[in-house]
Each structure stands twice: as C-alpha cells, then as structure tokens.
C-alpha cells in the first residue's frame, strides 16, 4: 500500500486525469445546453497542436496555452455553426470535425516541421511537483467555478433551461442559440486547454496524440451523470486505474482490460445499472423555432 501512496504516484494520477478532466467539464457545459459534443477529441488534438506551434514560434509557454484555447474555440465555433445555426445533426458534425482536426493538424505538422507524425521537442512544463503544480491548481479552480456556474448562477440556470426545454426558455425571452453557443464555446476552450496540457507534458506534438481521450472525457461525463463533480470523479477514477497499471505492469492485469474500463463502465451506467443516468431532455436535438 505504501508503494501506491507516493507523491510520484499521486502526481502521475493527476497527470493522466487532467486531459480527461478539462474536456469532460467542457462537455458538461455543452450538453447541459443541449449540444452533444463528440468533437471534443478534435478540439483536444487541435489544442495540443496549437500549443506546440505557439511555443515553437515564440518560445513562451503562455502563448502556447493561449493558442490552444483559441484552437479549441475555433473548432467549437464550427461545431456551433453547423449544429446551432444550421441545425444539422450534432453527432455527424462531431465526427466530421474529428476527421477534419486529425487531417489539418497532420497537414500543418508536415508543412511546418517536415514530418506529418511529430514535431521537434519544445520547452514544456518542467515538473513542479505537488502541490504547487500550476496546471493542477487551475484545474481545481475550473472545477469549482464550473460547479458554481452550473448550479448557482443565472447563466447556469439559463444554460440548463435551453438544454431541458428550449421552447419554454425561448418563450421566456432567453436566446436558445446564444446560450448553446456559450456552452459549446466554453467546452471548446476547456478541451483546447486539455490539449495544451498533453502537449506541454510531452514537450512535442505527435499525430493523433489525443488518442481517444475526448471520447473518454465524454464517457466520464456520462458516468458522472452530466454533473461536474461526477465527471471529475470519473476522470480521477480512470486516471487512477491507468496509473495503477503503469505502476504495476507485472501485476498480471493486462493493460487492455484497464483501457476497456471507462467504456465498459459507461455502457453499464447508461443501461441504468448504477442509478439512473438521464441526459438533459433536449440534448442532441437542434432547436427549431415554431412559427
């Protein structure tokens, strides 16, 4: 047991959980507002690539982070445009954006760095250890803000209203489109930031480096029953499980089974075996105003 509770283990768990946590909290905003966000994967990937580009050209980590936020936001605006403005299918849009992001990051990686599979090494985050790891502190802060914003503010109430019953919200004078755009854009920013963490942690970009994390983040949000704290706990659980396998690779538990865990849990939760998991009533349905 002592082996587990070392600072290195805890740090590693957080290291793995952060790129799940940020997009997962993002997904809460997007889905509470009624927009399914499968594009998280593409947003993470774009964020990671933009961070590396930012650092490569300016040598500043901060610029990299700003770039990653912008990249996530750009992809999210595209998602909003297609699904909120044009009211097209949210799932198809998400898949298309993931394909698009995968292609465009590789394309520019090849153009800028001469290889479509990886960038050169750049400065990233040196290990600052616990508890002063700024990224970790930011994550905790974002979690607290999210819990507060969703549950205790006018913004949160309106966001939930357009996700639950857009007709009613509309009739009360709340702009459904505006609220949904806000939800999607926040999710893009957070996913982009998650990408920045991936890039900074690895000090480089590799093609497809998001490696399904966007989907895991989505799964965590479902397991957390569309609630920020629930999502955060699920992310931590996944991080813990992965960290555990890394620590005890000879323990006999095949890594593939740990990899399956988040997905299996999601299916079980969705089937209603662990309490009831109900998405917002209008989640996934574009809002068409009735004349």
């Amino acid at each position: 047991m002592q082996e587990i509770l070392t600072a290195a283990f805890v740090l590693q768990t957080f290291r793995i959980s952060i790129p799940y946590l940020l997009p997962s909290l993002g997904a809460v905003y997007s889905e509470k507002g009624g927009v399914v966000n499968i594009a998280l994967e593409g947003m993470l990937l774009s964020g990671a690539f933009a961070a590396i580009i930012g650092i490569y050209y300016t040598g500043s980590v901060l610029t990299g982070i700003v770039c990653s936020l912008l990249a996530g936001i750009i992809v999210s605006i595209l998602h909003g445009l297609i699904t909120i403005t044009f009211k097209a299918n949210q799932i198809v849009s998400g898949i298309a954006l993931n394909i698009f992001a995968f292609g465009i990051t590789k394309f520019f990686c090849k153009l800028i760095f001469g290889s479509s599979s990886n960038s050169p090494r750049v400065i990233g985050l040196e290990s600052w250890g616990l508890p002063f790891n700024p990224f970790l502190l930011i994550c905790v802060l974002i979690l607290i803000i999210t819990v507060f914003a969703i549950n205790r503010t006018k913004f949160g109430l309106r966001l939930k209203a357009v996700g639950q019953n857009p007709e009613a919200a509309d009739s009360l004078g709340i702009s459904v489109s505006k609220m949904r755009y806000m939800g999607v854009i926040i999710s893009g920013a957070l996913a982009g930031l998650g990408g920045a963490w991936l890039a900074l942690d690895q000090h480089s970009f590799t093609d497809g480096m998001s490696a399904g994390r966007g989907y895991i983040a989505l799964a965590a949000m479902i397991i957390g029953k569309w609630k920020p704290t629930g999502a955060a706990l699920a992310c931590l659980l996944f991080g813990l499980a992965e960290s555990f396998t890394l620590q005890f690779q000879s323990s006999g538990v095949p890594t593939q089974f740990i990899q399956m865990l988040p997905y299996l849990l999601t299916i079980i939760v969705l089937a209603g075996f662990i309490g009831k998991a109900t998405p917002p009533a209008a989640d996934g349905i574009p809002y068409e105003k009735k004349d």
């Binding site: 097209a88 198809v92 394909i99 698009f100 992001a101 995968f102 292609g103 465009i104 590789k106 479509s116």
Partner: peptide, 23 residues
C-alpha cells in the same frame, strides 16, 4: 502535398453536406 489534405477534405464534405441539406 501532404496526403492529409484528403482527410481535411473528407471532413469538410461531411460538414457541408449536413449543413447544406438543412439549408
């Protein structure tokens, strides 16, 4: 030209199709 140009175009085709159909 990096072959990923095709992946980008595939993504765009899908996005456009669902949007254009709705419009």
């Amino acid at each position: 030209v990096p072959k990923e140009i095709v992946t980008i175009m595939q993504g765009i085709i899908i996005l456009l199709i669902i949007a254009v159909t709705k419009i």
